[in-house]
């Protein structure tokens, strides 16, 4: 074997040897966290006030619930527990809460139903076709807004009676309520979101899209929701909001992320860690609030669970 053959063989051998080795998901986030911790340690060594660097916040919560916060000291009987939760703790519990839910896999011809209340539409009921092929609608403020189905790339729009307009048939893209190929692992979710919405959650558009998804624009299986939270956990800059209410006035615990003046705030039930709603801020002012009241799968548009 001469030198060039040896080098060629060696390159091929190393290609084969390392082909399946990939950097773990979240490596960048972990590197940032470790770097921050090292800076922090150096800062402490240099005499930075400890109180200013305290991580985690104090949250009061009622006892009970399958995913009740871990207590740090034995509580007195009947007393409220005081625990420290970070944003990561909240999301970890949200993952467990999601996975504890039964997986209801919808059939293509069914509808996803949401009852929501938000700052734009007020109370609204939405029926969206699971695979996007059937006509759904939104009932809000006494009006019915059609969500026209798209079957085989075509949709037919029926004009309102008495409008004088004629029926239109046009090309379309289906807008399914349920995405069966939405990933169920954090790393795949990261790739999916990066492919569809940008390179990371630091992108405000991605944060906004996630709010929409969580709000109920898409029907998520428990594993998909858990993957979303798991991916979300790796995002730098998450903060916990110990006390916050959703748009329906329900008390919750929040996780926030600020990007370019826009703060997405996701609200979870403090006991069950089910998703409640959002309370977003833009330019320091509330920009959008929402609450998800009911989510279900039904057979027909207009049918309530």
């Amino acid at each position: 074997m001469n030198e060039s053959q040896l080098i060629e063989e060696l390159s091929a051998a190393l290609d084969a040897e390392a082909a399946t080795v990939r950097v773990p998901a979240g490596a960048a986030g972990r590197a940032r966290k470790r770097a921050h911790r090292r800076r922090l340690t150096r800062g402490l060594a240099a005499g930075v006030p400890v109180a200013a660097l305290a991580a985690g916040l104090v949250v009061a919560s009622a006892a009970g619930g399958p995913h009740a916060p871990v207590r740090q000291s034995a509580p007195k009987a009947g007393a409220a527990k005081t625990v420290r939760l970070t944003a990561v703790d909240v999301l970890d519990r949200a993952v467990a809460a999601a996975l504890a839910q039964p997986a209801v896999v919808p059939r293509p011809g069914q509808f996803a139903y949401w009852k929501t209340v938000d700052s734009v539409n007020g109370t609204a009921e939405t029926w969206r076709s699971v695979n996007g092929s059937r006509n759904g609608f939104v009932l809000s403020r006494g009006k019915k807004v059609m969500l026209w189905g798209c079957a085989d790339g075509w949709q037919t729009i029926q004009p309102d009676q008495g409008s004088g307009l004629t029926q239109i048939t046009q090309r379309c893209l289906a807008q399914p309520a349920y995405l069966p190929d939405l990933p169920v692992t954090a790393s795949e979710m990261q790739e999916y979101l990066a492919r569809n919405f940008g390179s990371g959650l630091q992108d405000a558009a991605v944060a906004q899209k996630l709010t929409e998804v969580l709000l109920g624009q898409d029907y998520l299986l428990p594993a998909q929701r858990a993957a979303l939270y798991r991916f979300f956990v790796t995002t730098p800059g998450l903060k916990v909001i110990p006390r916050i209410r959703d748009y329906a006035g329900r008390p919750g615990i929040g996780v926030s992320l600020t990007t370019d003046g826009f703060t997405a705030r996701w609200i979870f039930d403090p006991n069950t860690f089910a998703y409640l709603g959002s309370a977003d801020m833009a330019g320091g002012k509330p920009s959008f609030g929402s609450a998800v009241l009911t989510v279900a799968i039904v057979d027909e548009a207009g049918q309530r669970p």
Partner: peptide, 25 residues
């Protein structure tokens, strides 16, 4: 800092596999 985080993420996305493969071999 946000911008640098995004750039760092992008760097890891592009070069992460190559770096870990270097470490592995």
């Amino acid at each position: 800092r946000r911008k640098s985080s995004v750039a760092f993420d992008e760097f890891v996305r592009v070069h992460g596999d190559s770096l870990i493969r270097l470490a592995y071999v």
